[in-house]
Amino acid sequence: MSGAAGTRDAAIRKWNRAARALDTKDRGEELRYGPYKRWIFSKARGRTLLVAAGTGIDFKYLPPGLEVTAIDFSPTMLSFAEKRLGESASPVELVQADVTALDFADGSFDSCITSCTFCSVPDPVRGLGEVRRVLKDDAPLLMFEHVRASNPWLGFMMDVMNPLVRRFGPDINRRTADNVRTAGFRIVREFNVYLDMVKLFEAVKA
């Protein structure tokens, strides 16, 4: 098994284990961040790729009029998500897939939504590159993500805590804005939700 495949398989196992906890612990996060998710998701259009559907906790924020393909690399997450399909105002198709190796044609989506996604993708730039490939040229990438704080003390703290936190959950010190740009996107809007560690991004192909 290659190193990348081993990392991916370890990540899948970790998120399979985390699925049940994630399904129950997000009440506070939904109260705090739900309105922001609803707002950023409202900008999606047409055929939409939802990356890392998780347990389907975000389906209720999807606006009507979309044709959503929701992917996740964890089969356990998808089994939870299946129970929430009815919460979406748009039809959702669940697909087990790894965002770093998507089996979709180039330019096949009109928009892409992510929600706390690129904190958990082992190779975020590669994943974002794949998202770029499957998006049409003018398609928006709409992201709700937590990232490393720019404040030196808070950023340092996140770096210190990350090795422990990532054993059970996501990386907490990702530099997602840099990763988005490195993958070939241009950020057209960046909005701080909490400090500058919980953010909304709107991006298009550079």
């Binding site: 612990k25 009440r27 506070g28 703290m157 909490y194 400090l195 560690m197 919980v198």
Partner: peptide, 19 residues
């Protein structure tokens, strides 16, 4: 507390204040 009404706000507080 995270289970009751959590969020990144609570996580950051725990890390900073604990230390």
């Amino acid at each position: 507390l995270n289970w009751i009404l959590g969020g990144f706000e609570v996580l950051m507080l725990a890390m900073q204040i604990g230390m």
